[in-house]
């Protein structure tokens, strides 16, 4: 059980953003991805999650071991907190809805519709989803957006608990989560060089 990324190149809109990205993530470890806006953090994470194809390189992870959380939380406004979470638990075939709500401090809100949650509460609910997927590798894109200081600390605790159970986390963030044990990978050096006349087969489009 390990996530290994080998000389990965990713592209958005036909333009290669990052290339030669290599790292490995062992159980119990977290990796923070940093880099300026537009460097390709989201694209890299979506590629790892299998949502878009890689331009080159390889991602090896056990099948169905990744779960992805991004800017959009996948919440349904007309469903309650518990229903939203229960749906994702059922999709992944695991339980623990009550436990997930307790750990993300959502128990008081369990019967409230997602439409009536504040932005931060929605975010907490979106992150609580990670706990009901039963998947070891968390791929998180700016997970702390709209969270207050207390919630950031709460979430850092949840991530730490996940790591303690042998889980892994890959987090793109600008905010210091307080996960001092996590390694940091700066993506700026992997920025794809603009190549002129690469001579590839479809060169005219490169």
């Amino acid at each position: 059980m390990e996530l290994v990324v080998d000389k990965l190149a990713v592209a958005r809109g036909g333009v290669t953003l990052l290339e030669g990205v290599s790292f490995a993530l062992a159980p119990g470890r977290a990796l923070i991805l940093r880099g300026p806006n537009g460097v390709g953090k989201t694209t890299l994470l979506r590629t790892l999650a299998g949502l878009q194809p890689a331009v080159a390189g390889r991602v090896s992870a056990p099948p169905e071991s990744l779960t992805y959380a991004a800017h959009a939380d996948g919440l349904k406004a007309v469903l309650t907190v518990e229903e939203n979470l229960g749906f994702w638990a059922a999709i992944h075939g695991v339980g623990g809805v009550g436990d997930a709500m307790a750990r993300m401090n959502l128990l008081d809100l369990r019967d409230r519709r997602a439409a009536n949650l504040s932005a931060g509460q929605k975010r907490r609910l979106g992150l609580a989803r990670l706990l009901v997927t039963g998947r070891p590798i968390w791929v998180l894109d700016e997970p702390t957006v709209s969270l207050d200081v207390a919630s950031v600390a709460l979430f850092a605790g949840v991530v730490r608990g996940h790591l303690a159970q042998g889980g892994m986390a890959l987090i793109a963030t600008h905010i210091d989560l307080g996960l001092d044990e996590a390694a940091v990978l700066d993506l700026a050096p992997f920025k794809a060089r603009v190549t002129v006349g690469s001579g590839g087969f479809d060169e005219a489009f490169a």
């Binding site: 299998g50 992805y68 999709i91 989803r129 997927t133």
Partner: peptide, 8 residues
């Protein structure tokens, strides 16, 4: 996105 990465 989440359904696409789910077991279904």
């Amino acid at each position: 996105d989440l359904l696409a990465t789910s077991p279904i």
